[in-house]
Design a protein around this nucleic acid. Structure first.
Length: 1095
RNA sequence: GCCCCGGUGGUGAAAUUGGUAGACACGCAGGACUUAAAAUCCUGUUUACAGCAAUGUAAGUAACGGUUCAACUCCGUUCCGGGGCACCA
């Protein structure tokens, strides 16, 4: 009888399947334990040996915990929405649902071969409607929630609406709120929702006609095809993860992640504390807000720098600098993100001509613009302190700006010094203070003077949540006019419609936009949402008046002729708003926030089918800003006709030319105020009878984006707890029972993506009361990457001759070609296989050998099919069995460590299992055909044998708890070696050894367990209890050092006293030799450890 | 540039609170069994020097320095490798 792993493993896998051995119940008196793997994306390539590393580690831990008496949840599923399937569909026309299904089957078959203890009845797939129904539901929870800034948690948006209705908001009263139209209210609410929509920049690839995700853009060109990619503003969905920045930081204190992982998350969140303060601009009634973390350096400010994109720039530029600034702005616009990033060290900038005033010493400070200041961080403007900041220093040197030194000798004139330890000089009221102390003093002063305030900034941005893609969750959102209307819960799931083509839609929309029937819900919409317009009281009044006046609305031009036209008008207006001309922006800066006359102005706001540049609805005033083309005769006629229409609606119109406005904005302001006064004095200043809403047939469109890959993975760990629930995503009882994931195993590549998003979703669900914990993962273990070890053959350039690596002196004369690692033994090429490889591509090549062998070159690279360095676990499992494969992967080294794969050592582990087998049965003798015999027996073990066992139990427990599996495997080897040496074949010992080994090698241990005649399955055996009494030693071999160097050893009773030890040691021969003629200065005795004699 | 994590035999790697550096394997060398091969078993394997040998002496955990009776382990400086962030004020 011998270790026939193929039969054994097949037999037990079937048995475990038949008996539902891995099925886990939510109803158990045992304590719960949750071990989770990061679920895989089912790619077409299948598994390579790198994938199972983490799965094996978690499987061992699950089995161990189970033996220890826990009810262990250890599920697996698939992150099955995503880009590769869609790209594959684009190329081959195969539907992603089909390829995904196929890939999952392959994955499961491969995983099953390795013998994992997953409860497959709990499998989830993110692309399954029964799963994404709940992804959509949670999205709606996010959509219908806001972040309360006082209680720092998510709350239902209905509470906010109630507050607005009764108490108003920060910039409007309750009355005003109630008078707002639906659109206005929706816009305000959108600014608070946790999942929200706004215009944002996306990567637009004109050549591909599509929007690309960040990871599809490499160095400014598309990953596929290498086409240029530009930034484009489009409506996008976002998650307001910034609201949770602080809690995401604090939560890190409560979880066991590696320091590196925590650090990465902290960096990503990028919290910085400082102050925001205003610098007044001379001769202009303007101020520039800057953000700084070093207010202590305020007296060292030599210039201000504003981001080129900052809206204030236009108002700052002086007449003399206008040309230069325009040129610089043109230059900045011409620069791609790629250039800006790759040429960081290149210093560019331009002086605006404006001067700010240092509020503390009145010093004039030149204001510059430069691309090194980012519009998106802080206020988009900085105070530059060249003596303390290297970038500011380089800038000052480059443009010859004089540098003020406020840190004395700490500044050497050669480079900036960002120390906080210097004593301040030339710093007014801060003089003589240590910089780190001065920070608080300066902030207090700033607040006292009312020129600024303490401010915390985060580098993290809100997370983009929409993709112009097909293979993802559709948004349960319908756009009614400009308002996002959520689907009702019982209309979920909103199924992803079946697609036959996967090309992009119009205007940068995703493939779904091409499916008109699906997109246009219009009149066909019945139960989903009430799409009847709900006019505000003011609108209602206007509508009524209009109804009285006319029966033919279209004749009056009051409304668009079709709903579609109206929607187009709205969209067009929105687009205009986001692409203002220079002059428009300047005027907007002037009139926004009720800055002029206290009236609210809107820009690019539809009035019927017209979109005036600016409109004040309160005073029926329209402001038009004309570019040069308005001088042309044809345009002039149109302008007049349009004015007449608008006048008929009751509007007054004033016009300015671009140039006039930019030249003298103060004058423009005066003109507007005068006009308003004029209107106010008129008797008939009643509001204009206008409509800003479409009429006629009810119409709406579905959101055509889909959710990103991380949507489904942000909450999947909850679904495993209660996977078949049709009432809710996870029953509260189930999540209370299983609670947090106790151990989560996966790679570091998700450090700032998945791990942050799932932490945020957990916090939101916690805030809303759906679950009882606000961190999803208690402990995170990062498995290392298994790299590939590539092999190369070298072909002389321009020939068909290959040379063995060791006879090549200069690689430059050769083409280096990847060769399949599976046809190379170590570095020696299997020449026969090589000739057959790639359908005989190298059949006629000449190989120049050295000493009869052909040696390959080698290099460690990422494991990938294209590098021919992948090793398929199936092959190894076939050859050595799953138990050997599992143990070998663990034996390779610490789980967290990355290492190149090397199949060589697997023999050693396989030998170990065979040796284990021989403790039970001898091998059959093929020569004599004599079968192997049973060697195990029922004899009572002796103390020495108990000692081997319990020593091992102790070590395995420690190592397993610490995920130190490589040393655990070594401990098993030691145990088996010792038992073999001691001829310990006793059932009592062996059966316990099997139990502790079973998490590592489940198949062979189950077989032997049964052969021993033990009860039931080893999967549910009791973990042996450690009995310390067998480990107590009567004597100990104490190492003896002389002056710290190991010289000898002495056998002493364990409970020896120092004095006894001293006498014993000093009288041993080996020691007396060293003592000759010297005096013992010190005798160090560490009980149970060692002895050191100092001479 | 900044922030993490590493650096130990020919190779993968071990080493509780500082306490016998190299466990356990791979590979290699030699041997046993065998007609032979496979399988299995045994011995040796950090380096240098001395010795037939057991063994002894010296050096040794990237480099240098420090703390300590004692340092792979703690501290400082430098070098190398891996990962992350990258104009974040």
């Amino acid at each position: 009888m011998e270790y026939n792993f193929r039969e054994i493993e097949k037999k037990w896998r079937q048995n475990w399947k038949d008996t539902n051995a891995y099925k886990v119940s939510n109803d158990s008196p045992k304590p719960s334990f949750y071990v989770l793997d990061m679920f895989p994306y089912p790619s077409g390539a299948g598994l390579h040996v790198g994938h199972p590393l983490g799965y094996i580690a978690s499987d061992i831990f699950s089995r161990y915990k189970r033996l220890k008496g826990f009810n262990v949840l250890h599920p697996m599923g698939f992150d099955s929405f995503g880009l590769p399937a869609e790209q594959y569909a684009l190329e081959t026309g195969q539907h992603p649902a089909v390829t995904t299904e196929k890939n999952i089957e392959t994955f499961k078959a491969q995983l099953d071969k390795i013998g994992f203890c997953y409860d497959w009845s709990r499998e989830v797939r993110t692309s399954d409607p029964s799963y994404y129904k709940w992804t959509q539901k949670i999205f709606l929870n996010l959509f219908n929630s806001y972040f309360c800034n006082t209680c720092k948690q998510a709350k239902p948006i209905t509470e906010l609406i109630e507050k607005y209705k009764t108490k108003g908001g920060s910039s409007f009263t309750a009355e005003e709120w109630n008078a707002f139209s639906d659109t206005e209210q929706a816009d305000i609410l959108m600014k608070r929702r946790l999942a929200f929509s706004k215009f944002g920049e996306v990567n637009w690839c004109e050549a591909l006609g599509t929007v690309l995700a960040n990871d599809e853009v490499v160095n400014g060109v598309s990953e596929r095809g290498g086409h240029p990619v530009e930034k484009k503003k489009m409506r996008q969905w976002y998650l307001r993860i910034t609201a949770y920045a602080d809690r995401l930081l604090q939560g890190l204190e409560t979880v066991q992640f590696s320091d590196a992982m925590k650090e990465m998350q902290r960096n990503w969140i990028g919290k910085s504390e400082g102050a925001e303060m205003e610098f007044g601009i001379r001769d202009l009634k303007l101020g520039i807000n800057v953000y700084t973390t070093r207010p202590d350096t305020i007296f060292g400010v030599d210039f201000l720098v504003v981001a080129p994109e900052h809206p204030i720039v236009n108002s700052l530029v002086s007449e003399e600098q206008k040309r230069a600034i325009d040129e610089y702005l043109t230059y900045v616009k011409s620069r791609s993100d790629r250039e800006r990033q790759s040429e960081v060290k290149q210093i560019t900038g331009c002086f605006t001509g404006a001067y700010a005033t240092n509020p503390f010493n009145g010093k004039p400070i030149p204001v510059w613009i430069a691309e090194y200041v980012l519009a998106g961080y802080g206020t988009g403007a900085i105070m530059a302190v060249p003596c303390g900041d290297q970038r500011d220093f380089a800038f000052a040197k480059h443009f010859n700006i004089s540098i003020t030194n406020i840190i004395g000798e700490h500044y050497n004139g050669e480079e900036a010094n960002s120390t906080k330890e210097a004593t301040l000089q030339n710093s007014g009221f801060l003089d003589g203070m240590l910089m780190k102390d001065a920070i608080a003093v300066a902030i207090n002063k700033i607040e006292e003077l009312g020129i600024g305030k303490r401010k915390v900034n985060y580098r993290m941005r809100d997370a983009g949540f929409s993709r112009q893609r097909y293979w993802g969750e559709p948004f349960p959102i319908i756009w009614k006019d400009e308002i996002a209307v959520p689907l009702a819960e019982n209309d979920l799931p909103l199924d992803l419609p079946f697609a036959e083509k996967y090309g992009p839609g119009p205007n940068g929309e995703g493939p779904l936009a091409n499916m008109e029937e699906w997109v246009n819900v219009g009149g066909s919409l019945n139960k989903q949402v009430d799409l009847t317009p709900n006019p505000s009281p003011k609108e209602r009044e206007l509508l009524d008046r209009l109804e009285e006046k006319t029966t033919d609305k279209k004749a009056y031009g009051y409304i668009n002729s079709t709903p579609q036209e109206w929607i187009n008008t709205l969209a067009f207006a929105k687009q205009n708003r986001h692409n203002p001309t220079e002059a428009e922006d300047a005027l907007w800066q002037l009139v926004r926030n009720r800055n002029v006359g206290g009236y609210k102005f809107r820009r690019q706001h539809p009035v019927s089918s017209f979109i005036p540049d600016f409109v004040c609805l309160d005073r029926n005033l329209i402001i038009e800003i004309d570019g040069g083309y308005h001088n042309e005769a044809e345009q002039n006629i149109f302008d007049i006709a349009r004015e007449n229409w608008l006048k008929e609606y009751g509007f007054e119109i004033i016009r300015f030319t671009n140039d006039a406005l930019l030249k003298d904005i103060a004058n423009v302001k005066k003109a507007i105020i005068e006009k308003i006064k004029e209107i106010e004095e008129k008797a008939e200043s009643s509001p204009a009878p206008l409509l800003w809403r479409g009429g006629g047939e009810v119409s709406a469109k579905r959101e055509t984006s889909t959710m990103p890959g991380y949507a489904g993975s942000s909450w999947y760990f909850l679904r495993y707890m209660d996977p078949h629930n049709t009432e809710t995503f996870c029953d509260r009882q189930a999540s209370d029972y299983w609670n947090q994931v106790d151990v989560y195993i996966g790679g570091t590549e998700h450090a700032v993506g998945h791990l942050l998003y799932s932490r945020m979703w957990t916090k939101v669900l916690f805030d809303l009361g759906y679950i009882g914990f606000d961190e999803p993962f208690k402990k995170l273990v990062n498995q290392g990457m298994i790299q590939g070890s590539s092999r190369f053959v070298y072909r002389e350039k321009g020939t068909n001759k290959f040379y063995s690596r060791d006879i090549i002196s200069d690689e430059n004369y050769f083409d280096k070609i990847h060769v399949d690692v599976n046809i190379v033994d170590g570095v020696e090429l299997d020449i026969e296989e090589f000739k057959k490889w790639k359908n005989g591509e190298f059949l006629n090549s000449e190989l120049v050998l050295s000493d009869g062998t052909f040696i390959c070159g080698s290099e460690v690279e990422k494991m990938s099919k294209s590098k021919y360095n992948t090793v398929n676990p199936d092959v190894l499992v076939d050859k050595y069995g799953a138990d050997t494969f599992r143990m070998y992967e663990m034996f390779l080294g610490p789980v967290e460590q990355s290492k190149p794969w090397d199949t060589k050592g697997i023999e050693g582990v396989h030998r170990f299992l065979k040796k284990l087998w021989r403790l039970f049965y001898t091998d059959a003798n093929p020569a004599t055909n004599a079968p192997g015999k049973q060697v195990w027996n029922d004899e009572k073990p002796n103390d020495a044998e108990y000692k081997i066992l319990h020593k091992t139990i102790k070590k395995i427990e420690q190592d397993t708890e610490n995920f130190s599996y490589n040393t655990a495997v070594a401990a098993f080897m030691i145990a088996v070696n010792e038992m073999a040496d001691a001829k310990c074949f006793k059932k009592e010992i062996l059966s316990q050894l099997l139990v502790i080994l079973s998490p590592y090698a489940p198949h062979v241990t189950e077989e032997l367990w049964n052969l021993l005649g033990c009860d039931g399955s080893i999967l549910v055996a009791a973990y042996p209890t450690l009995e310390e009494k067998y480990l107590i030693e009567a004597t100990k071999e104490y190492p003896v050092s002389i002056n710290g160097k190991m010289r000898s050893s002495v056998n002493l009773p364990t409970e020896v006293t120092e004095e006894e030890a001293r006498q014993a040691v000093l009288s041993t021969e080996a020691v007396t030799k060293w003592l000759e003629g010297k005096e013992v200065k010190k005798f160090i005795f560490v009980k149970g450890r060692m002895i050191n004699v100092v001479l």
